[in-house]
């Protein structure tokens, strides 16, 4: 059980939420936006999180958007992952989501919650990183839209009082060839050792990673290695592994050296599945 008390608010509009946050912050209540809440609940129980006020964003219509409007897909931060899977607008997101936690937990874990998690994995961001998606956030200065890589670069970039409202993705990415694979320490359950999501765009394969570094990322340098024509598959994969732009983690799921070994093999699978093996 959670060994401290907090106030609970469920605003029905963005402006109300922002205003609540401002007031509660001024009152020194360390307010947090609450979406699925699974991480807030589980970390609070262990004294690893503290707040005196939560602002539940699931009552805000914009945070619950799950619709295609013209060529653009809108997915709200407050949507449970399971609901996004059922709607299945974005196949790469669907398969990525299906490998997060477990089915029942995903009834509660939301898109925004996963992306803004304090854990290193945040796998739901991967498809958005690959699809040049836009991110809509809301804060004191109202709603703002910006490219995903300005919102998420190693860390989430949010001002005080600002929160994630929704993602916007162009239709052509929803129909692009894709591949997703998650390797675990052993068998089918547990955190990722490495998750790779891949998307084909204009004849090039884009890749994004979770579990490899202390944050999920997309790497242009690795993509260059992978997309090099006239290079044998194994060589491409090795070059990509040598070009990992960030620190590789060693933890109880696996060592950095082992992660590199696994990644090399996984990348060969990715390129094979994307039909980009290259010369033998």
């Amino acid at each position: 059980m959670i060994p401290f008390d907090f106030e609970y608010y469920k605003p029905s509009s963005i402006s109300e939420a922002v205003e609540l946050h401002r007031q509660l912050d001024e009152a020194g209540k360390k307010p947090v936006y609450y979406s699925g809440g699974t991480e807030i609940i589980t970390l609070s129980r262990l004294n690893l999180f503290y707040t005196e006020a939560v602002i539940d964003i699931k009552g805000i219509p914009e945070c619950c958007l799950c619709e295609k409007e013209g060529t653009r897909l809108h997915l709200g931060a407050g949507l449970p992952l399971a609901e996004i899977e059922r709607a299945d607008y974005f196949p790469l997101l669907t398969v990525t989501s299906k490998d997060i936690a477990d089915n029942t937990a995903r009834m509660k874990i939301t898109l925004g919650g996963n992306v803004c998690s304090e854990l290193i994995y945040r796998e739901a961001i991967l498809p958005f990183l690959l699809s040049d998606s836009q991110v809509v956030t809301a804060g004191a200065s109202g709603e703002v839209s910006r490219p995903v890589n300005e919102f998420f670069n190693k860390e989430i970039v949010l001002e005080k009082g600002e929160f994630l409202v929704r993602f916007i993705t162009e239709e052509r990415f929803l129909r692009a060839p894709y591949f997703h694979t998650k390797r675990r320490k052993q068998w089918n359950t547990g955190y990722p050792l490495i998750t790779v999501a891949a998307l084909q765009e204009e004849g090039k394969t884009r890749t994004a990673y979770s579990g490899l570094s202390p944050f999920p990322f997309r790497s242009r340098i690795m993509e260059e290695s992978l997309n090099r024509d006239n290079t044998p598959l194994r060589r491409k994969a090795e070059q990509a592994v040598n070009n990992i732009p960030h620190e590789i983690i060693s933890d109880s799921e696996g060592s950095a050296e082992y992660r590199k070994f696994v990644l090399k093999n996984v990348l060969m699978d990715v390129m094979t599945r994307m039909g980009r093996r290259g010369p033998e």
């Binding site: 320490k185 052993q186 068998w187 089918n188 359950t189 547990g190 955190y191 933890d251 109880s252």
Partner: peptide, 29 residues
Amino acid sequence: AGREAFIFDKEGRIMNPQLRTYRPLHFSE
């Protein structure tokens, strides 16, 4: 045999004291 073990850090602390890190066999396994 295949998966279950406590993982200790250098100070002898257990790094996997939860069922998401200490993993019994699941249905699909």
